[in-house]
Simulated assay, not measured.
Amino acid sequence: MFDAPTIGIIGGSGWLGRSIAQALLDKAFIPPEALVLSNRSGRHPLTGVRRSQVTLTCDNQALVERCEVIILAVRPEQFAEVEIFAENRLVISLMAGVPLAEVMALTGSRQVIRAMANAAAQIGKSYTPWLAAQAVSDPQKAFAQRLFETFGGADQIFSEGHLNYLTALVGTGPAYPALLARSLLEHALGVGLPAAIARRAVNAVVVDASQLIGPGYSVDELLQTLISYRGVTAAGLEAMIAGGFDKTIKAGLDSAASVASAMGPFVHSADTQEGPMTR
């Protein structure tokens, strides 16, 4: 079984690595003595009384030797500097655009999962799609799903192309809502609203009101309901749509997905659990 392994996070002081480490402890997913973090600074990234029981190292290979599960939470351009040999260990890569084949080649592990968490892990709201190499066992997959659920929701997918697309869609975390919020805020300030009022109003629209999506309404149902009133909201929505809102959003996703797909070489379908790869 694969129930209580020791987990190591390389890049454990970064935004994502630190958030995941904190979630693993806060949810009691593993005891603190079963968590090892590595970073280049040597500074401890965690808070709370249990942090003293978490092992901290600057030696990535030393982390590997102590752990059954290795989480790579470094930037893609830093991957070559990691220099680990992790044969017979489950390696979970959170690096955008780095294919399974490349992770396997540079870590020596055939048991590799690619996952795309995002910054919302900090508040337990990341959506994390993940893709398993063929050698990953069913118990390891079940373990990975539980691990990802400590900081949000997760789904297994079966195409590297789909994971690259989801990197562009959900790997961005709060970036797209933040861009919308900035446009709304700039407009509100432009008409003379006090800054504090404008910020609270924009937060109410982007963060609070958007929570209506899902529990009681689908996106289409909500939009059609609001447009059908033929009032202020309808006027705003119809002007945005006519101005190319949909086209702009889709062009942005196309551009981001293209970058994600181009970051590493194409991976043959034999390296994944099932299904052909797409670009």
Rank of each mutant, 00 (worst) to 15 (best):
Thr150Ala: 12
Gln122His: 04
Glu186Tyr: 01
Ala234Cys: 05
Arg279Asn: 15
Pro45Gly: 05
Asp138Lys: 02
Glu238Phe: 09
Met95Arg: 00
Asp208Asn: 12
Ala23Met: 06
Gly8Tyr: 01
Leu90Asp: 07
Ala234Ser: 01
Ile249Gln: 06
Gln111Lys: 05
Leu147Lys: 00
Glu68Arg: 04
Asp246Cys: 07
Arg50Phe: 15
Gly190Ser: 02
Gly17Lys: 07
Gln53His: 08
Val103Ser: 05
Arg230Gln: 10
Ala21Asp: 12
Glu274Gln: 06
Gly252Pro: 05
Leu193Thr: 01
Ser228Arg: 01
Leu189Thr: 08
His187Ile: 15
Glu221Asn: 02
Ala195Asn: 07
Arg182Gln: 13
Leu212Arg: 14
Ala257Ile: 10
Ile84Cys: 10
Tyr165Phe: 15
Thr278Ile: 09
Gly108Arg: 00
Ile10Ala: 03
Gly244Gln: 07
Ala168Lys: 03
Ala181Leu: 10
Glu102Ser: 07
Lys125Val: 07
Val170Leu: 15
Ile213Val: 14
Thr167Arg: 02
Ala4Met: 05
Trp15Ile: 12
Pro177Gln: 03
Phe151Ile: 06
Phe29Tyr: 08
Ala34Gln: 11
Val98Gly: 08
Phe79Gly: 05
Phe79Thr: 06
Arg50Gln: 10
Trp130Leu: 13
Ile9Leu: 02
Gln273Asn: 09
Asp3Ala: 15
Gly192Gln: 05
Ala181Asp: 10
Tyr217Met: 09
Leu222Tyr: 11
Phe266Thr: 02
Ala105Gly: 02
Val54Asp: 05
Met104Ile: 11
Met95Glu: 04
Gly124Gln: 03
Gln122Pro: 14
Pro139Cys: 05
Ala21Asn: 08
Arg279Pro: 14
Ala34Arg: 00
Ala251Val: 10
